[in-house]
Amino acid sequence: MKKSKYDGSFYLNPYLGGVILGTVLLLSFYISGRGLGASGAVKNTVAATVNVVAPQHVEQSAYYCQFAGGDKEPMSNWLIYEVLGVLAGAFISGIIFNRLKLKVEHSPKITSRRRLIFALGGGVLFGFGTQLARGCTSGAALSGMAVLSFGGYITMIAIFGTAFIAAWVLRKNWI
């Protein structure tokens, strides 16, 4: 536990981190009535991009037209601003705890290339899953749990339950 604050290996006590995260979540509900999220910003950006490239396509698509096209402004969105804030907040924390460094983090047993391929694949699956489940670990599971949403709990159990099994299958990539 005695790690120097300056070699990048110091982390907050996880319970303190949890209390901070929970308080931020609570404030988010108090101020805006919404929880925290991340994947919604991706959805809005994709919809906005497609809207610029092929507006007719947005009008025809049963999925895009829910939040893009017409007079809707998918880019002017709470979630986009929040994501920018997340990047800034992480950057500040990186400065304080001396963790800013461009690198690919991976297990010593695998190559960077393999790590990046798996990260990409994981991102694709996660992106797909967030749309189906209407939210990710923060938006659906964490924020959902805070307001006792049944769907939030179901999503949380499905994510962690599956990840537990899948992580053991893929354990050579990690340990």
Partner: peptide, 11 residues
């Protein structure tokens, strides 16, 4: 009643 934030919903 405030409309549910369906378009911004999700995560």
């Amino acid at each position: 009643k405030a409309p549910e934030a369906s378009s911004g919903g999700g995560c």
